[in-house]
Design a protein around this nucleic acid. Structure first.
Lengths: 198, 198
DNA sequence: CACGTTATTCATCACATGATGAAATGTGGC
DNA sequence: GCCACATTTCATCATGTGATGAATAACGTG
């Protein structure tokens, strides 16, 4: 029986260990947040010594931002929502958001991002960027009156939906088909966008 | 100059050190969550040795649950919302929620509670309790059809509002007067309670 | 094949954490 | 005033963390 004790030094073949580490990091940061995730835990999950993690990505914080890389450029989604005028905008927004979050690969970084909002270090950096990159452009492109207020209301509904459906996984929200949710939330979001405000 | 080096042993007078520790714990758990808060940090904030923290409240986890003590019995709020039938229920719910969260003293434990949802250990315990103690009783007392689904929708809007207003502190939501928010959200919540569902 | 480069582990540091037990100091009852 | 008790700090452990530098093994190029 060949004891497969991990000898040290380079291992044969060309396994993409770097990618394995990154995947493990994404997984754990998404599930546990930044503080509760340890470099050693990531290393173990990737079947690798913790020093290797530092070798590829420098510090833990560097690894975190590396794991946050989104596959979607936020600026790409703005025209998708705004094209077509303000009438169907609520529906398009809800549908787009759900499609992104329902995609397994986009979900992990997004989850880590959301979690970071609730940790001390992330501070208001993420919400600020979110507002500047998405909410404000969409609001302005739709030509809304009082865009800041309206887009914040929209965000309050969508954040609640995302948190309950994907983070806390509350039923029956978590298992509801996307189209049902579109039908449910689109009118409300549309109301926040173009309806009367008190 | 009398060197006020903290001598050891009991200190004179009768300072309620236990309460000071509890207050410091509340503050820090609410602001940073469970994992990122250290017993030593709490002790320092309370001007006290960390061993004293262990002396009064046993383990860190014990201290956490002690700091979670709400001044409001969740069961008390159910009749407040349900009394008066389903017509004004949406408005009463929003107003009650805002009044609780706008009260400085209730806010800290609630914040810690919300933060714990996003940490690995809290798991689904808090959402489950919330659903069982509040959402379900309210839904049933109002005699809704499909209470689970409707109350989850309500929760998705209210959670979003709370997260943006109190946790992330997004403007203009954070500084909006409570009554404006009642006027804004009550119709939506009422719609989820008694309106048609797709 | 030799040799520099890259991938990988080991050993180790410095540090912070949660926790415990002993010692010191005050308070209240007799 | 004495003595049991509650309150407080000190010294200390075991553990886990992020990080670094040296050593070893495979690879790629000449």
């Amino acid at each position: 029986m060949s004891t497969t004790a991990p000898r040290r030094g380079r291992r044969p073949g060309s396994p993409d260990t770097r990618a394995a580490i990154l995947a493990a990091a994404r997984q754990r940061f998404a599930q546990q947040g930044y503080a509760a995730t340890s470099v050693r835990g990531i290393a173990t999950a990737a079947g690798v010594d913790s020093a290797l993690v530092h070798h590829y990505f420098g510090t833990k914080e560097d690894l975190f931002v590396a794991s946050l890389e989104l596959r979607i450029d936020p600026r790409e989604i703005v025209p998708v929502v705004t094209a077509g005028g303000r009438e169907g905008a609520g529906e398009r927004l809800v549908r787009l958001l759900l499609s992104v979050w329902d995609d397994e690969e986009s979900r992990l970084p997004l989850m880590a991002l959301v979690r970071s909002v609730f940790e001390p270090e992330g501070k208001a950096l993420v919400p600020e960027a979110f507002g500047r990159l998405i909410l404000r452009p969409v609001g302005e492109a739709l030509g809304l009156d009082d865009p800041e207020r309206r887009m914040t209301l929209v965000a309050s509904q969508l954040v609640g939906m995302v948190v309950l459906r994907y983070v806390a996984r509350i039923e029956p929200l978590a298992s509801a088909p996307a189209e049902t949710l579109v039908a449910t939330y689109a009118p409300v979001v549309q109301g926040y966008l173009t309806g009367p405000l008190p």
